[in-house]
Design a protein around this nucleic acid. Sequence first.
DNA 1: TTCAAACGGCTTTTT
DNA 2: GCCGTTTGAA
Length: 817
Amino acid sequence: MPDPIKPVIVGVPGPSGSRPDDDLLAGLNEPQREAVTYRGPALLIVAGAGSGKTSVLTRRIASLLRSREAWPSQILAITFTNKAAGEMRERVRGLIGDTAQGMWISTFHSACVRILRREADQFGFTKNFTIYDSGDSRALIKRLVKEHEADAFGFTPASVQGRISKLKNELADAESFARTANLSDPAERVFAEVFADYQRALQRANAFDFDDLIGQTVYLFRAFPHVADVYRRRFRHILVDEYQDTNHAQYALIHELTRPPGSDGQAHDSGMMIFDAPSGGAGGEEAASLTVVGDSDQSIYAFRGADIRNITEFERDYPGAKVVLLEQNYRSTQTILDAANAVIGNNFDRKDKKLWTDVGPGSAIIGFTGYSQHDEAQFVADEVEALHRAGTAYSEMAVFYRTNSQSRALEEIFIRSAVPYKIMGGTKFYERAEIKDAMAYLIAVANPADELSVRRILNRPRRGIGDVTETSIARYAAEEGITFRDALANASALGVGPKIQQAIAHLDAVLAEATEVMLPASGEVAPPTSVTEGLNVLLNKSGYLDALRRSKDPQDEARVENLDELVAVTREFARNNPEGTLLDFLTEVALVSDADDLDDSSGSVSLMTMHTAKGLEFDAVFVTGVEEDLIPHRISANEPGGPQEERRLFYVALTRARKKLHVSLAMTRAQFGEVSAALPSRFLQEIPHELIDWRQSPGDVNSRGGTQSRALNGRPGSGAGRGGFGGGSRYGDDLVPLPRREKPAGDITKFANRIPAKVRDNGDLELAPGDRIRHDDFGEGRVDMITGEGAKRVAHVRFDSAGPKKLLIKIAPIAKL
DNA sequence: TTCAAACGGCTTTTT
DNA sequence: GCCGTTTGAA
């Protein structure tokens, strides 16, 4: 690596005219410019929602590179998601071209994996370690809870996992926990044992869980100062986005990296901050400069250990830090900002900060109250269609909800209404059983020490290997002092029946063959295409695919398709990573969440939780399920700081919208199969009522029309024809009415389950333009045209009372007249 | 060991 | 209303 050119510019450049940065500063307001150009040891950018922080961050990086203050390799930028990292990389490249190569722009987790893979052998791991996602670690914990009979003390796998995760986020480990815990309490003692065993199992499996990726990197830096110094010397400019959502471990990691190199031994073990202003002491080597960006109003991850104090006390942690405030919003209309400001203003312990814009008021927020969640979903679908007809692209619209389970009703209606959508996050591809199985096969090859993975594939497909045999293998391995995986090579010594011996020997042979493909013993490096090849060997020769194909369970057909998809992913990986290894592939899969997949151009409406929505923006936003017990969520109500965090979450949701914001709720909601009455969220009342134009207000639903089935008469106020204003009833001078509980029980059931769980199938119903049809909900109408092919044929229908709709012919509740 | 049927519990948000 | 777990039978 070439020596860096020494920084030329220190401190804020003079105001003189033409500097190389001029184009980078074009179009920025004064605080934004300052955030780009300030030079010093520490900079905090307090960036309100939509204030252009990504732009500022990318230009700051570009400016550092362009002025030769830093080489790309000296820059470490941390983002919250891989997607954000990719976008930032692109934008920097757009500003200064390919010279941007070599920067580290990644999430905390990805950066730590890179470091750990490099340094693993320093402390008892090897570089082919496995990354356990929460499902993997829960499976392991589950076994340990059982072994220790910890359930007798009320521990569940989930509760143990949560507690361990919390401890790790505070950088506690099993030993330090045992030192401080009250071990005379038997429950505490059992927990301490499970924790210790869990950690030992991870170490034996050569594996890290998500929290370890951060925590062990911190440990590595603290235990091996010479290793830490390598990275301290390397990264001269560290930038952290979404700083309000960092937890203690991440905070500690940043602190380790921003110490002056070679300074260890002085303030080491104390855990104290030793950030000396760059005057530098004797050593002369300066600490890296640190830039953090955040907004305490958008802190929504306290539940996973994010500590808002990391940002509120930044100035204390880094004395002399410069603070820049970005309050001008470039995203939303003033109406949206007024609503958001009003809501967040109800959080008392915050620094007052008001977003403003100069784009004008824009249109009113549209409110809607459905009878049921399906009714609400239908409103969203109708509105999406109306906006689409008016020229808004589907990809510019998003629907948010608090809990993942709320997506189902929306999905059902969207499918029926033929609205193209995609769910971000949600049930993840990589969490499907068959995909996890396939990944376990790959991991068994890459990291044979990973017993969990080997155990997982032991009887998949069914080989007649049950609990008894599994235990025999484990016992044999323990006796011989070899790994579980190696024990498979000695089937005849296990003391099991000949049939089972044969099955084990076969599995062993398949694993060995795939190993030779992907990690040749000859020592030459396998080409990236070998991952595809190896996966095919594993899936075919193990009999996994055959078993699925032979099965008569209709779902298994879909599983085969999913596995085909995974094979396609490996091919894609090989194309994108000409140097990629099996290990690289596994890393990518472990760390890239589904929310990251980048097919935004697909022209679909995005459905996601409010959490996933952070950092995104759309022309039109639908915030659904704005009900008590949902937002704020019931569980958060009793947690300290819970309701406030929920309010911030709602605030984040509102501020994603550029032009059109919709808030909706339902009067009844089915949960756990039970239908119950829902109340409007308290947050709704915090929005000044004149900002909301109610198409159908909570009052409408309660007082009149409540007994009349809208399934029969369609929806009066919806559809394309209505301009939006003046149609629905507004609240006059009243506050948004408080919910009334006394609702006739009768109409609760009436509207709750209009959507049958079973998908209906019209077979190959033939429709042509001009046909008259009858729809269960919308009544009669005339077919305008037919688009699409086969099962995806869509009828565009103009209903007499409900207006224009698109219907998926195969499943819509329609009949030809 | 595997399968089907009944049962109970539960869901906040995620790298 | 779904999931995983438990139970009993083959």
